[in-house]
Every structure is written in C-alpha cells, then in structure tokens.
Design a protein around this nucleic acid. Structure first.
Lengths: 206, 206
DNA sequence: TCTATGCTCAAACGATCGTTTCATACACGA
DNA sequence: TCGTGTATGAAACGATCGTTTGAGCATAGA
C-alpha cells in the first residue's frame, strides 16, 4: 500500500458499502457484486484488499467495535470512585447508542451487529468474544465494587440481562417507533436514559 | 392432501429439517438442497408443499409462535386480579423459555427466532408483527392495571426493554454458559427467575 | 530511463442457488 | 376396475455466487 494513500479510498468505500449492504441483506444475503457495485470498485478488489468475504465481514465489525470499546473504557476510566451505578451503566450504554448516532454508517451498523449476534458461525462468535471479554470484565468489576453484597454469579446474570436489552435496542428491534416530531438523536437519548434507569433498578434489586 | 395423512410426514420432516438448518446457517445460508437432503425428501417437495422458500420460512416460524402465544395468553388468563407484577411477567417469560426446553426442535428454534429478528426483510417483520401485536397489547394492559401511577409511554419503554432481554436470552446470545453440573432445564429455570426478578424491579422503579 | 511494486480491470472459473418441468407411482371414489 | 387427483421422482433451467486469473496501468526508487 502506498504510504501517501494509507486511507485508501477503495478500502474505505468497500467497507462503507459492505456495512450498508450487510445491514440490509445480511452477511450471506449481500453479495460481493452488490458491494463492489455500490462502492464503485472492481469486483476483484475485495479479495485483493481483504482476502475473502469472511475477512471483509470481520473488518466491518472491527472498525466500529474498536471505536466503541475505546469510548466505553474511556468513559469508565473517567469516573470517580464515588460514581453511582447509574454512572457505570451509562458509561457502558451511552457510547453504544452514540456510535449509532455518529454518522449514517453508524445507523447501518445497528443491524450489522444484530446479524453478527444471530450468526451461529463459531469463527465469528470467537472474533466477537475476543474483542469484547476484556471490556466486560472491567465493567463487571466496577459494578461489583458498588454492589458489595451482591453475589458474583448473580451479578453476571444481571449484567447479561442488561447486555441483552442493550443489544436489542441497538439492533433497533424494538416495538417503540420514533415519533415523527422528535429527532433520531432525541430518540436515542431517551433510549439511553430508559435503559440506564431500568438497568440500575434491576441491578440494585434485593 | 389426503385426509388420512393430514399430518403428512413429508411436510413435517421438511419443517423439522428446515428449523434445524435455518438455526444453524440462517435463512439465506441454508439451502433447500440441504433441507430436503436432511428430511430425506425430494428437492421439489418444498416448492410443491409450501410454494417457495420464503413461505417455508414463515411456516417454520408460525408453527412455534402459535404455540407460544397460546401458552402466554392461557397463563395470563389464569391469573387472578390480585396477581403480582412478577406473576404477569412470568406468564410472558416462562412459556417462551419452556418452549425452548420442550423438545430438541425447540432448542433449534432459539436461533431461528434470533435470525428472524435480525432480518431486515419487511415482509418477515410484518408477519412477525401480525402474530405478536395482539399478545403484546394484552400484557401491556395487565401491567398497566398493576402500575396505575406509571405513564403509558413509560410503560411501553420498559416493556420493550423486557422483551429485548428476553429475546436475547431466548436466542442464547448470553455470556453466561450453562455449568456442566446443571441440566439444561435447570439453566432455563434459573434464567426465567432472574429475568422475572430483574424485569419486575425495572418495571416498579420510580 | 528502467524496473519493481501496488493497484485496477474485464473475463472467466466451477459451484451452488431457487425454481420448474414432466414423467411416474400411488390411493381412492365412482 | 377404471379414471382422477395427489404426491414423489430425476433432471434440467437460468441466474448468481465467491474466487481466480492474467493483462494493463500508474507510480516510486534505483
């Protein structure tokens, strides 16, 4: 790769198009011909730059998840010792929802995440797990510090439930439709607040 | 169809095989040749009995969802007026988890549900919505009766969060792995109790 | 200027897809 | 027993899939 074009527009355009089409049609449903057509690049460019379709899927995921995990850990690190459970949960939830609101691609990434979770494929699951376990452990620790009487196994059960609700919300599965008189940003902000509030109540529950 | 064979073993075998393969490889990932091969029927049998692959997908979903929705409404109808929020939530959650434990196909249906949610396809979403909205409305009503001070919009937000956590749990996405020393039934029972407990706390939250 | 390298291109590869066709076998009412 | 409609069979349809090939172009370093 030429240094002067490290952010090769071909690779970027492929990733953007792949993200949009994977979101719309799924990983198997979206063909490389659709992707390269939308990206206005040659069909062979995918295999040249990424090696295979599977590798392209991983790159689409990695590009967003790396940003998301960094924002989460930054938000967690910025908290004081006196921070509440709500603060910790918000550090976990808000970056995820804001990622979606960042740009048009972020919104498409919603469904890509959902697709990824639905994939039974072990290779993909392992890839996701590898990019996730570290973050999970740190948040579990932060929550455990603030819930000293809560059993560890019980804490992980509850954290799992929170992740479930967040994943569902990120994937835009919900029954709640955004009201036409409110913006997408306002809708996401509402979702964050409801999720944090609900999750904190469940976490604290005796 | 011959009356004496209303439960045609061919149709049943196709549905069972399709459920297993859709769970494993997704709707687009599983081919009709795989399905008919596993079902030990001719390739043309799918289009003959179901019309198309899309119709087969709908039938796979409908077969389980009809049972699930009936169990949910029966459980809700069996509750007394004095039933608690936990009772209502359990009437919603337990049938879903028990459906999974019923037989081997139920476990496969977990992932099929997850796939269905991940599908952006509008036709499929509308099909799911049509088979779901009625049940949702009744449970929302039962919860509203027991939370008279809670705003209606707020209630739907929270119910949506509960559905998210349940969907995630049903799809077996969770980070919590069943311990080798406990049975699958025990694991599901634990999941039900944690979900009900957590959801009730979130629902009641001020 | 020459050469090596990074990149793009059109074209084709074999494989597999969902669907259709048509012949055949079977069961049942007339 | 005959004729009719249901069901299954093998085979092929055109389309599309992910991937590979090899030629051609542009650019950077020698």
């Amino acid at each position: 790769m030429r240094l002067s074009e490290e952010l090769s527009s071909t690779k970027q355009r492929i990733l953007d198009a792949a993200e949009a089409l994977f979101a719309q049609n799924g990983f198997t449903g979206a063909s490389l011909r659709q992707v390269t057509s939308m990206a206005k690049v040659n069909l062979a460019a995918v295999n040249y730059h990424f090696g295979s379709k599977d590798k392209l899927v991983e790159e689409v995921l990695r590009r967003r998840l790396d940003v998301l995990n960094k924002h989460r850990l930054d938000a967690l690190a910025a908290l004081r010792d006196t921070a509440s459970i709500e603060n910790v949960l918000e550090a976990f939830i808000r970056p995820a929802m804001e990622l979606l609101a960042m740009d048009h691609g972020g919104m498409a990434f919603r469904r890509v995440m959902a697709r990824a979770y639905a994939e039974q494929d072990n290779q993909l699951r392992q890839f996701l797990s590898a990019h996730y376990s570290n973050v999970l452990r740190q948040f579990a620790h932060a929550l455990a510090e603030r819930l000293p009487t809560l059993d560890k196994a019980e804490l992980y059960w509850r954290l799992d439930i929170v992740i479930g609700a967040l994943t569902y919300a990120m994937a835009d599965f919900g029954i709640i439709q955004r009201r036409p008189d409110s913006s997408e940003e306002q809708h996401l902000e509402q979702a964050v607040q409801h999720l944090v509030h609900f999750a904190a109540a469940g976490m604290r529950s005796a």
